[in-house]
């Protein structure tokens, strides 16, 4: 009963309040977004709660995530450092934040295995955040003595100068494992091919759909799109984090159903069987 109130009644009342509030409390034009945000958040929250209450969650094995620990182990055995590249964007990109959350886990592994870690960064504010992330990860593993201040260092803000700098590090120091986790653009292949040429085990992850093919070609493992965002939850293994992934999957099922529905109704509208174009609810500036 409590669950029913929490996950059905509250969102329903919120939506009622949003649409029927008599005063102009809400901005116009964001209705579809609001409905989507409310539904999505409550679905994710519901599965987080379920996971917290002990519901078992099956997670499809993701090779790239499993290989992370192996890569750090390999670097340790070879006595070579691990290179972690957090992309070239600032903290206003969710990819950079995801990259930093994964860095927290990788730094924990390097602390545990006593492997060297190098994090060259492109944006100064990311450098500060990455430093904190690494420092805390080493502290949490009880190995703060291994943390060095120059582990995370600034290279340059310029995209290709940064690529040249990171390539230089790869060619000189020959890291055994290279992680590319963050937002990447045209420099992705330049970096990944150099890593490939030195024989490093490479694990990439990005939300830049145009760069995924390059990483798939040149790296050993690649986290594609949403896998990349789920990696941190996956690595933490905590039920509530995993629950959010299950919730996300259910939302995806909902999206698929919506796509099929819009497709069918648009087709019916196109053939003149129904008079309402459903897609007009979702699209604004369309020429065709």
């Amino acid at each position: 009963m409590t669950q029913y109130i929490k996950y059905v009644l509250i969102p329903f009342l919120t939506l009622l309040f949003y649409f029927f509030f008599p005063f102009p409390l809400f901005l116009e034009g964001n209705e579809t977004t609001f409905v989507c945000v409310i539904i999505l958040c409550f679905i994710v929250e519901y599965f987080i709660e379920k996971a917290k209450n002990g519901d078992k969650i099956y997670m499809r094995p993701i090779a790239a995530i499993k290989a992370m620990e192996e890569a750090v182990g390999r670097a340790t055995e070879m006595g070579k450092p691990v290179l972690y590249v957090p992309g070239i964007s600032s903290l206003d990109q969710i990819d950079t934040i995801s990259g930093l959350t994964i860095l927290g886990h990788v730094a924990g592994m390097t602390a545990e295995y006593d492997a060297g870690l190098q994090v060259p960064v492109c944006v100064p504010i990311v450098m500060e955040t990455a430093k904190e992330t690494c420092k805390e990860a080493y502290l949490k593993k009880g190995r703060s003595d291994l943390y060095r201040n120059d582990m995370v260092h600034y290279v340059t803000d310029d995209q290709f100068a940064y690529a040249a700098g990171v390539n230089g590090i790869m060619l000189r120091e020959k890291p055994a494992a290279v992680f590319f986790q963050g937002k990447f653009y045209a420099e992705s292949l330049i970096l990944a091919e150099t890593g490939n040429s030195i024989g490093a085990i490479q694990i990439a992850g990005t939300g830049s759909s145009s760069q995924i093919p390059f990483f798939v070609t040149a790296c050993d493992y690649t986290l594609i799109g949403e896998e990349f965002y789920a990696a941190s939850a996956y690595l933490s293994g905590s039920p509530e984090m995993l629950g959010s992934i299950k919730g996300q999957d259910y939302v995806k099922v909902g999206c698929i159903i919506m796509i099929v529905f819009v497709f069918i109704s648009s087709a019916l509208n196109g053939y003149g069987i129904i008079n309402f174009d459903v897609s007009s609810l979702f699209r604004i500036n369309i020429i065709r």
């Binding site: 653009y185 604004i284 500036n285 020429i287 065709r288």
Partner: peptide
């Protein structure tokens, strides 16, 4: 509702093409 066109690098086209297809 302001019309927009774009010119971009070849690498970026796959990112932009869904917006082009939707108009």
């Amino acid at each position: 509702n302001i019309p927009l066109s774009s010119g971009c690098t070849s690498i970026m086209v796959t990112d932009a093409i869904p917006y082009v297809e939707s108009g």
